[in-house]
Write a protein that binds this DNA or RNA. Sequence first.
DNA 1: CTGTTAGCGCCTTCAA
DNA 2: TTGAAGGCGCTAACAG
Lengths: 363, 363
Amino acid sequence: MAASTLTEVARLAGVSPATASRVLNGSARTPGPDIAERVRKAADSLGYIPNAQAQGLAKSSSGLIGLIVHDIADPYFSAIARGVQTAARHQNKMVLLATTAGSPADERAAVAAFAARRADSIVIAGSRSTRTSDRQGNAELAAELDRYCRNGGRVGVVGHAVVGAESDEGYHVVEVPNEDLAAALARELAASHAGEFVIIAGPEGLLTSDDRVRGFQRGLADAGLPPADVLHTGFDRTGGYEAGLELTARISAPGGSRGAGPDAGYPRLCIFAVNDVMAIGATAALRSKGLRIPRDAAIAGFDDIETLRDFRPALSTVRLPLEEIGRLAVPVAGSGPTAAATVGVTGEVTLRRSTEPAGEPAT
Amino acid sequence: MAASTLTEVARLAGVSPATASRVLNGSARTPGPDIAERVRKAADSLGYIPNAQAQGLAKSSSGLIGLIVHDIADPYFSAIARGVQTAARHQNKMVLLATTAGSPADERAAVAAFAARRADSIVIAGSRSTRTSDRQGNAELAAELDRYCRNGGRVGVVGHAVVGAESDEGYHVVEVPNEDLAAALARELAASHAGEFVIIAGPEGLLTSDDRVRGFQRGLADAGLPPADVLHTGFDRTGGYEAGLELTARISAPGGSRGAGPDAGYPRLCIFAVNDVMAIGATAALRSKGLRIPRDAAIAGFDDIETLRDFRPALSTVRLPLEEIGRLAVPVAGSGPTAAATVGVTGEVTLRRSTEPAGEPAT
DNA sequence: CTGTTAGCGCCTTCAA
DNA sequence: TTGAAGGCGCTAACAG
């Protein structure tokens, strides 16, 4: 038993399909009130549901917004996804989800799939990388996106303009001042912190990570401090954990080059992890070795993930309005190519207990 | 400049559209190797991308899986979403996302929208409620789902069978033994805990919450204990926080009916929050009043949310294989109605520091 | 093995 | 205002 069609409804109402179409869907003006009523009754007596595929085919537009993330279970992305979802609802469109683990090849495929479905717009969250191994992938992704735009699609990007995009038309980017915010964070930390700094970063070439590292170093320089060592690792909790383990040795090495042991009152190490989840991983690693935050080391993250808000010690970080970012990343429906623009959001350095001076044990 | 069509490709290759279709899309067997080559070259010289809408229309199937969650930013749902996404990829379909905040009316609308798009299957996560105010909404949701099934759709449900579903055909449910697991948790806690028990639950009528409450009470009874008081509140962190504040009064009331104050060695209150996020909220509330876990009260949650794994004190909870649940919830593609079945998953009581006997301060 | 002929369900000119 | 006709892009039956 297949779903009933517009034609069936029309027949039951004793009108032509065209008329039925006019009353049931947003046409210019509803036909004669009596007719309209008849059609409507017929429609829901049959449980009629318009076939969006057919509508889409006829109108060549789908009411779909494609969203590309690395991993929907990552709280960073799921927060953005919520924003995208909100914006989609306002445009009454639905969102199509693709997860790519950050692989440019998968992202390209996702764009193609969205294009195939004639998505009205595509939102790409999650930073791309400049690694040479990704060069070709990036180029192909850029090409695919360009083609999508040329065919009338709009794309919204979180963070950076798409690497290698040819035209600006159709691109809409939400700029996140990662570098500046990281610099601000560094300066604030430098003001209250006497020890050395070290950065736990994602893989080299990951744009977001690189920006935050660069900014942090700049902030240190602004404060007259030497650049921090940088540990490159995975951009997730596991990466943070591994880096944390490495740092453990460095912190607790008795008389080690950094001098500060768990029992020393020496200046502690101050760790900047380029995102919250990594910071949490690092914290867990330190803790597993008996080290305590902020007693034995200070640590700060980036993003201010909501689910981590109650984490103890409260994590110093940079608050990013993730949901708003998601909302803003959705290109405005029906706007001409000229609407492609760059909007900026702003974050906020948020110092909490994890970078407080070592003192009493945490409450 | 519109996207190029199959017809254009065919023309460029000097063959008929049908032939082009055969080579470019999954037909029985690829036509003549030379022809095939020509077509393929023509296709990507034009940057041809098949129009999924048209394909769907012609084949009446869309390669879409609809996913309905309360809130994609909630880690419980995003974990499930990841599983759904994985399964979808295996069936090479894409997932369409709808968020409903648990409103039956929105869920109904989402089902209708999915049906309109001819989604091959729909997955509903998030418990429905039996509140009388939702009665009509539930009925309409059930009706919409039934219609969808009758038209050949498959639906996967997480947790419970859909309230009021008429036929079993097409329904596929992943059963989560909330009640049994909660009972097991209660028994384990009862074995090591001497104080009173109290339950922080979601709104009355929310199936998942009710099941967990019922199970916990049963477990207490099994252990020969009286039923716990139940506080009904929101099913999220805020709800947990509010309930936590209420309990604070109860815990710290000097000589209050429960007798145990922060400084007393008396049996502590043991709080069971029906999900992790609520447990975290409650913990934050207690902490805000200077109470410490597990010193002043024990607390346990449910779900074992991954992002909360590093929370301190480590939260006792019931581990649910959320991602697997998501994966299993996706109905098998192309299976007949008979494939509709109920699969079960199992969880695991996981006792951690938050319910340990009060002792030294947490490490 | 290839081409021709019909639709899939809807929207949109165009006449009436 | 309403109906009739054509097409959106593709696939699936048939022929050849």
